[in-house]
């Protein structure tokens, strides 16, 4: 019997192959990195998307930001409105990337790729975590562009690399949560166009019912309540604290975002198998 071949040795060898050590926990970080790499590779093949998606945040900053700075309609203390707005728009551009990420998982289902991912030795939760942090890395690439543009528009951003790194972690967590939300909805509706509709329906309310555009204190009570349960508010609060040195509750914000990601991963991974039936 021939014993060696270019790609595959005799069949029996696999049976005695030891499984890599460690359980789910050892494998989680490796899977997350794998999905990061794949996302960056996809991005590198289509860089125009980064620029086309940067148009909208720039419009927000230039038109909304400049206008409201001039008319002093929104009380932001001694912080210029444009500076106040920039972290909100940064969070928003991550939100938009992430909330439509569930569409990708439906697309992968329709293309049969999800089926193959589900039969790799990857626990469902690792698959979802990997995918959601892949959304995070894409959001981060987007946020990088918006960050540079904000600086060019004269926003007084921090130059401290540690704070910027912290802001990246915050964007990563926030976007991962919204990607989980999107994948959870994907696991419920199962259809691309329905998910598109729901995505469009919830993004703007998520954005408006947060502190992204205006401080919580000027909101009516009901909106304050919504803002308080909206993870986007915590993301924006942390970004303001890190990027423009406004008073923030960083510890609380991080805790809320991490908890949101954990719950989001649990919800989405319990539904993802529905997509493979």
């Amino acid at each position: 019997m021939p014993s060696a071949a270019p790609a595959a040795p005799p069949a029996v060898s696999a049976e005695h192959r030891p499984a890599p050590g460690g359980g789910v926990w050892r494998r989680l970080p490796q899977r997350v990195v794998t999905f990061w790499i794949v996302e960056l590779q996809k991005l590198s093949h289509d860089r125009t998307e980064l620029l086309t998606r940067a148009v909208q945040p720039v419009l927000w900053l230039v038109i909304f930001g400049e206008t409201f700075s001039k008319i002093h309609a929104i009380p932001t203390g001694h912080v210029p409105y444009l500076d106040f707005l920039a972290p909100g728009i940064i969070a928003q551009s991550g939100l938009f990337v992430a909330i439509f990420y569930g569409i990708q998982i439906i697309w992968e289902r329709d293309a049969g790729v999800l089926t193959k991912l589900l039969v790799t030795p990857t626990p469902r939760s690792a698959l979802i975590l990997g995918k959601s942090f892949a959304a995070g890395i894409r959001a981060l690439a987007q946020v990088g562009v918006v960050l540079v543009l904000s600086a060019l528009l004269g926003v007084a951003l921090t130059a401290n690399p540690l704070r910027i790194l912290g802001a990246f972690v915050v964007v990563m967590l926030g976007s991962a949560f919204f990607a989980c939300l999107s994948m959870t909805v994907a696991g419920i509706v199962l259809k691309r166009d329905r998910l598109m509709g729901i995505g469009q329906m919830i993004t703007m309310p998520l954005f408006f019912a947060s502190n992204a555009l205006y401080p919580v204190k000027v909101m009516p009570g009901w909106l304050q309540a919504l803002s308080r349960v909206n993870p986007l508010s915590y993301e924006v609060d942390a970004l303001r604290g890190l990027l423009i040195y406004s008073p923030a509750h960083l510890g609380r914000d991080f805790a809320v975002l991490v908890l949101a990601v954990v719950l989001g991963v649990a919800a989405a991974s319990s539904l993802v198998a529905r997509l493979a039936r």
């Binding site: 794998t34 794949v38 039969v119």
Partner: peptide
């Protein structure tokens, strides 16, 4: 871990190169 599977439907990530597609699965299979 012991199984290689090719589903009925043609299924590949078109936004990646052939090599990237295979490397992706090499990573997922450790």
């Amino acid at each position: 871990r012991l199984m290689g599977y090719v589903p009925q439907q043609l299924s590949i990530e078109g936004a990646l190169t052939g090599r990237e597609n295979v490397t992706w699965f090499a990573r997922l299979f450790d």
